[in-house]
Structure formats: structure tokens, C-alpha cells
Design a protein around this nucleic acid. Structure first.
Lengths: 261, 261
DNA sequence: AGCGATTTGTACGTATGTATG
DNA sequence: CCATACATACGTACAAATCGC
């Protein structure tokens, strides 16, 4: 590690020197600090974190505590530990590179092409389902998009995230937020690998704006989906809603790997 | 604990006294032994396991090792640990009691109770979407069921599988194919571990029988889901369709653990 | 309400094993 | 073979939750 990196690392762990008021255990505070540093880009995917021994010097914690923090992060998939080599920031999974919530397939199982365009970006002050996931003190921004599937039908989507986490998504020019870029910005910006996604589907009347955006009569009912993406078990990265216009195709959900027992 | 139980516990941990040849770490060996004992019914769901301190006496392991074994089991969901109370064998999760695919949640995120009943079991000679998955020469059987969610609305389901693979499902008395047993038979019989499940959802008019079974007017449209379960990457174990009557709840899909690479 | 006994939760320090380069 | 770095394990201590008296 060069000097600048050493300094950065020292700054990262500075907060741990102060007496704790949160009541959270030390191993969790260390894990939090590491995640925050990864999020800030101090260590990037593939980078090696300081070894355990060094962390015991950089922090006021013992080896056991350091090990537990790293093991927890490793179990959450944010860190990969390799015996004899070191602990590394995990790479963002491949599926994240491409559209992943809205995969429609035709009867032959082929994925239909989609095109998306951002149409609005606003601050969100009211509370809603997203608050549960993003946390009460999140500084929520929302990006509205229209997704056109196979030139056939439309989806109206609202994407909710924390402004701090998705800084660039908030700052960049709207017209650069087309489909491909949108994902790229999220992946690049949030840096944390998305390790878990949960999907929900229900039937409900679309709201007025959704109807307009999809070119449907007001009050039309149909499929409504939302997805919640996590980095690790706890940290929600974003919450996203999809109003799906009536259509003849099937929405395919990602394969679920069933854990044994 | 009474004497019989003490003896049982001593027998359970007997193997740990012998020198290990497997090379597995002690905390895993202890966890294995506990799981095996639970599987054998020595401790049943809700039972309290011996406290940590007692386990250090029953086994040749230290407190830290005992704690790690219990913590791992707790993270796997097999054991519930309660501060100041003890460690208990977990109740089997609701989701595993019956169809894995029909988890409806209310606004608070709680899983709604379901009850299912088999209503027909037939041989299938025609081809359909299931043929793609089960293979052209599969000897297909079909089990139709009605699933009642939260005493509120109904789902009509058709389950397709290979008669040879699910022999007992075909042979056992129909009236024993209630919800709990259905799943149990599949798990027991098929023996192959289901490792991957893919879900598809679309909107479509329900077929006539589905409408009747769900108590809806003929020709009603709504949510139609199907799920394909695999053992390994290739071998399809079953194909299952669900016609979901209109309702106010959200269908929750299993968390997708996004794999790296 | 208080107090002790029980039991899990966190943390430390140390020692040794094992994979990697 | 050696240095590095993660993995397991032990023993100890104290904190915090729960229950019964």
C-alpha cells in the first residue's frame, strides 16, 4: 500500500477510536466502516483489504473481533477471503451488468429486447414502501422511467435510492440516463455488490401517471411488480417499482438457488 | 433434563470423543452431530438444547467452539438462540410446509397461511409447456390442487412430473395428498435435491376449469404463474402451474442470491 | 422493585494449524 | 524452507437478557 492509501485507511478507521455511543458491537462497527470505505471507493472490487493483523493495529480491536467482522462480510458476499492470500473486495456479479428485473420471454423462451428512457428525477420527502427498506433517515431520490418491451408494450418504473449512495445518478444529465447507462451508473456508483434481490408481484389498478405513461385508460388494472436489492443481508441499495402494461408475454424471474436444509 | 434424556444426549456426543479422521473443524462436527440428533428426533422443534456450558462438558470442545457451532446453526435457521433463555430447535419455516412457490405476504410482510387439497390425479398424454422441461419421453402425471390462501382467495394449481420419479405421488391414496404431505412426498420420493427454481408470471384468461375451481366467472383474466424446479442445472424434476385468483396481496418470490462471476 | 442464578453475547489474548507464493 | 495471512481453537472475563424469588 502506498502512503496515500495508508493515510486513507487510517482516516477510515479513525471513527473507531472514539468511544461508541451506538451500542452496536465492535465487530459490527468495524464491518460498517469497511463497507462504507468500499462504498466510497477507497477499496474497489478486487482490491485486497489490510490483513487481519494490520487491522488490529489500525483499530482498537482484537484479532478475534477483526476476524469476526471479516467473516461476517464474507458470509454476506461482500468480501472474499482466501487462505494464505488475503481478504478482497468482492466483484459485482455479472447479472448486474444487464437488465435483470424486467426479463420478458416469448413462448420460445427467448428474452425480448427492451429499451428504457428516463423521464423524471426528483427528491422524495414523503414516506412509502421504500422507506421500510431504505431506512427512515435515507435521503431518497426517485428516477421515473418508461421501459418499452419488444416495441410492443410499456412498463412504467419508479426507482428509489439514497442520494448519497447514488450521487452520480442524481447529478448526471438526464438525457444520459438511457437503459444501458442507468445500470452502469448504479453498478459503478454504489460499488457494493448486489448480493440479494427479492421480487414481489401483485395485481392492482395502476396509478394515474402510470396509465398516462403507458398509454392506457385511467384506472386500468394489471400487473404491478417491485424489487428490493440488497448488498449483504441488511443493506438495501434500492427499491424499484414496475407497472407492467397488459401483454401476452411472461415475466421471467431469476433462478433461485435453493439452500439445502 | 431427565435421566433418559441425559443418556440420549451423552450417546449423541459420544462420537465426538473419538479422534477425528474427517479433517472437518470441531465446530462443524458438533453442528453435524446436533443436526443429526434433531433429525433423529432426540430434540424436536421447540425443545431446548443443552446450554453452552453443559455442551462444553458433554463434548471435548471449548466454549468458543460450542458457541460457534450454535451460532452457525442459528444462522442456518435450524436453531433459535435467545439471550438469557437458551438455544431451541427451530420450528420448520412456514414457507417449507407447502408449495414453495405460493408465498403471499400482506402489507406488513407477513407470510399468509395457506391450505391445499388435491382434487385430481391423471396421466397426461398430450404435449404442452411441461414437455419442454420434462423431456419428450417422460411418463407425465398431473396432480390438480386447490390452494386456499388466508381463507381469502383461491389458487388452482396443476403439478406435472414424471411417474417414475414421483412413483409414490402416483400410488398413494388421493386423500393423503393434502398440503403438508404433498411437499413431503416430493421431497422424500424424488430424493434429488431441488437446487434451482425458475418462476414465470404473466397475465392471461384463466381456463374454464380454473375459473370453476376458484369460483370465478368463466373467462376471467388474471395472474398466471408457473415454476420449473431443477435438480442440478439440467434435470427438471417438476413443472407447476398456478392460476391465482384476483386478490389484494403480493406474491413474494424467493430471494435471489446473485452469484459472483 | 430488587436480587441472584442462569444463559447467551461480546471481547480479549494467545497458540497452533494450514494454504499460498 | 520461509514469510505471510487466513482458520481454528482454547480459556477467560464481563456484559446483557431472562426468569423466579
Amino acid at each position: 500500500m502506498n502512503n496515500a492509501a495508508v493515510n486513507a485507511a487510517q482516516n477510515v478507521f479513525q471513527v473507531l477510536q472514539m468511544p461508541d455511543r451506538s451500542g452496536r458491537p465492535k465487530y459490527q462497527r468495524l464491518a460498517d466502516v469497511l463497507v462504507e470505505a468500499i462504498r466510497q471507493g477507497i477499496w474497489r472490487p478486487g482490491d485486497r483489504l489490510p490483513p487481519e493483523e494490520e487491522l488490529t493495529q489500525l483499530t482498537p480491536f482484537s484479532l478475534g473481533t477483526v476476524q469476526r467482522a471479516l467473516r461476517d462480510l464474507s458470509e454476506q458476499g461482500l468480501v472474499v477471503r482466501q487462505h494464505g492470500l488475503g481478504s478482497f473486495v468482492a466483484d459485482p456479479p455479472r447479472e448486474l451488468q444487464d437488465p435483470w428485473h424486467c426479463r420478458f420471454v416469448n413462448d420460445e423462451g427467448e428474452v425480448l429486447p427492451i429499451y428504457s428512457q428516463a423521464i423524471a428525477r426528483v427528491s422524495v420527502f414523503e414516506r412509502g414502501p421504500w422507506s421500510t427498506y431504505l431506512g427512515p433517515q435515507a435521503d431518497v431520490i426517485r428516477v421515473d422511467r418508461v421501459i418499452i418491451v419488444n416495441d410492443e408494450f410499456r412498463i412504467f418504473s419508479r426507482f428509489y435510492g439514497d442520494r448519497k449512495v447514488l450521487k452520480r445518478l442524481w447529478e448526471m444529465p438526464m438525457d444520459e440516463l438511457n437503459g444501458a447507462n442507468f445500470k452502469k451508473v448504479i453498478v459503478r456508483q454504489c460499488r457494493l455488490p448486489i448480493t440479494e434481490v427479492t421480487h414481489f408481484v401483485r395485481m392492482q389498478p395502476y396509478d394515474d401517471e402510470a396509465c398516462i405513461r403507458m398509454g392506457l385508460a385511467a384506472g386500468t388494472s394489471g400487473m404491478f411488480m417491485y424489487a428490493v436489492a440488497f448488498a449483504g443481508k441488511e443493506r438495501c441499495v434500492y427499491y424499484q417499482e414496475f407497472s407492467v402494461a397488459p401483454n401476452a408475454h411472461s415475466l421471467k424471474f431469476p433462478e433461485t438457488t435453493v439452500s439445502s436444509v
